[in-house]
Amino acid sequence: MEVAFDVANVSGPEMGGIAPPEVIGSYISSARKPLLVVGSEMLRDDFFVEIAIEIGKKGIPIAATGHSIRGFVEKEYTENVHYYNLHELTNYLRDPNWKGLDGEGNYDFVIFYGIIYYYASQMLSCLKNFATEPLVRTVSIDRYYHPNARMSFTNIMPRMEEEYKDMLDKLVESIKR
């Protein structure tokens, strides 16, 4: 059994599963109204910013948290990218009456990407426990196993960085919108 990236982060009876990129991509494709939530770890390599932009170009709006917005500004991709503080954003996401980034309603599916592990884990925990009616489904496409997400990758150590990049490429490819 895979252990959480922060090994003692065992939340309870409902722990999310580990899935390959194609499965997570297909799961994202099933979303009615998905949102990509991006954090500052994305900035460690241009490749990861490009991945976010590619997902954004598939029509999935981006909430840029932390200081990740810098990556999009530098790449001059700001359409459909909105700065939010992750805590505040999660506070919105747990409310079914929130109007969303487009003013047309909340999201049914949230993709976490490039966010410091333990902060992301807590926000995923909030959504797991309190964004249930209607359900907001969550996945993480970070290099960590996230028990509080419904689905995530396995833990990927730095020496496996190229494999991780391949996984992200496959994931983007498998998102059908």
Binding site: S11, P13, S125, C126
Partner: peptide, 25 residues
């Protein structure tokens, strides 16, 4: 400033009824 909760543990383990699974409120 409504309280916002992000549980670090989904259970309560404080009495002998427990552990109780509180996942999903």
């Amino acid at each position: 400033y409504k309280p916002f909760y992000a549980p670090i543990c989904d259970m309560c383990c404080l009495c002998t009824y427990g552990k109780c699974d509180l996942t999903g409120n």
